[in-house]
């Protein structure tokens, strides 16, 4: 299960939205396969009855009061944007 073919890497690259050349796909397939081989040893661990550990913080979610404490900082929100117009971010036309 741990050998990645080029098509799988193409799909991962697409899901990651990273442009990869054909040669790049081959190289990545090799690199990623090596990494997967490396983590393969986990499969031998007995985790019967073991709950996944998603956070080591021994806490529950703190709740915030429902108050408007933020916003009205349009300039700050937009100040680093590569392209803006009329208070909006601008991107290539999205077709649905």
């Amino acid at each position: 299960m741990s050998s990645l073919d080029k098509e799988t890497v193409r799909r991962i690259a697409y899901l990651s939205r990273i442009n990869v050349s054909e040669e790049g796909l081959t190289e990545l397939a090799g690199d990623l396969t090596r990494i997967l081989d490396f983590v393969e040893e986990l499969q031998e661990v007995d985790v019967e009855g073991c709950e996944p550990l998603t956070s080591v913080a021994d806490l529950t979610l703190p709740l915030r009061k429902d108050e408007v404490t933020d916003g009205n900082i349009q300039q700050k929100v937009l100040s680093n944007a590569p392209m803006t117009d009329a208070g909006c971010f601008v991107v290539p036309k999205v077709v649905e």
Partner: peptide, 27 residues
Amino acid sequence: RRIMIGTYVLSAGYYDAYYNKALKVRR
């Protein structure tokens, strides 16, 4: 590389074998 490995281990069909397994070993 890390983004893609991360994407892969979370993707449909591999989540349990990799990510969820890793969380259990983490425990």
